[in-house]
Nucleic acid binder design. Structure first.
Lengths: 147, 147
DNA sequence: ATCTAATAGTTAGATGTCTAACTGTCAACC
DNA sequence: GGTTGACAGTTAGACATCTAACTATTAGAT
């Protein structure tokens, strides 16, 4: 049931394939809400980390403070976030998702879970278990995602 | 070695995690070449599919003909692609990556393969084989990526 | 206390991407 | 062969993002 020659499709490609399917599904989801990928990432991060300062947001989104500033202006204009200085520190701004912002992004994780459940549909329970263990091994040495 | 309760980290999340790591690695790579994600996708597609018309490019990139038009203008200005009408059809334009464009995107697949090899490092040969079979099952029912 | 360097954030201008409205070309049908 | 509708692509204008240069605040050194 196996071959010795080079594979026609490597695991690497299959992983990218799955990632691609997830990415495309996510893209549809955020576009329906008039959010860019970056905006939805930041909004989700703010729900998980209320009161984060812009510097941190820039770090976890792997971008610059200037880009975060512009991005937050867009979200603030739509009333999806609040910014205020707190605790006597005048140069840091604490950023919060508003109720409206939190509700807008709310279904994101659920939508992704549904997508991924559909993706795993061809596997039996035992196979899913095996896959899970292998993935755990792989991710154990991977830098953690920031949300 | 197993639990019955809900998982702390689902396979779904692990898959997304791996996809995230790949995406971030790709992001670094394209940014070093002053390409956007969309541009690098299209440029890579053109290397694989020389002479594609803009309508097809729009379809596979899941965007509009207008966006493709703008995007190609940017690539053309940098001399990374050529556009010309061929075969007596005046309304379709055949698009080709130039030598320079092909060279710019050339290392992309290799860079991704290197990243993903690093990702799979924690697995033994047998484990990789098992993972590969499971991933094949999963992807067998997934819409194929367009490059 | 004052100077300096690091830090947090903003603004200006360039480029990229998107939507809506447009031009030009082809094909089908009478 | 002329009209109509579908099709391929572009343009204009709005918004998002990025880089570089900037302002303002804080912390540390002396």
């Amino acid at each position: 049931m196996e071959e010795d020659g080079p594979r026609l499709t490597t695991s690497l490609e299959l992983l990218r394939w799955i990632g691609w399917a997830q990415m495309m599904a996510g893209q549809d989801w955020v576009r329906e809400r008039d959010l860019s990928r970056e905006q939805s990432f930041v909004l989700g991060y703010l729900v998980q980390n209320p009161g984060a300062i812009q510097r941190d947001i820039a770090d976890v989104s792997r971008t610059s403070a200037a880009s975060v500033s512009s991005l937050l202006q867009g979200l603030e204009r739509r009333g999806l976030i609040d910014r205020r200085t707190e605790g006597g520190n005048e140069r840091s701004k604490r950023v919060y998702a508003t109720l409206e912002g939190a509700e807008l992004i709310e279904g994101f994780d659920a939508a992704m879970a549904a997508t991924e459940d559909a993706i795993l549909a061809p596997l039996s329970a035992e196979e899913r278990e095996t896959l899970h263990e292998l993935l755990l091994k792989v991710t154990s040495v991977l830098p953690r995602p920031t949300r």
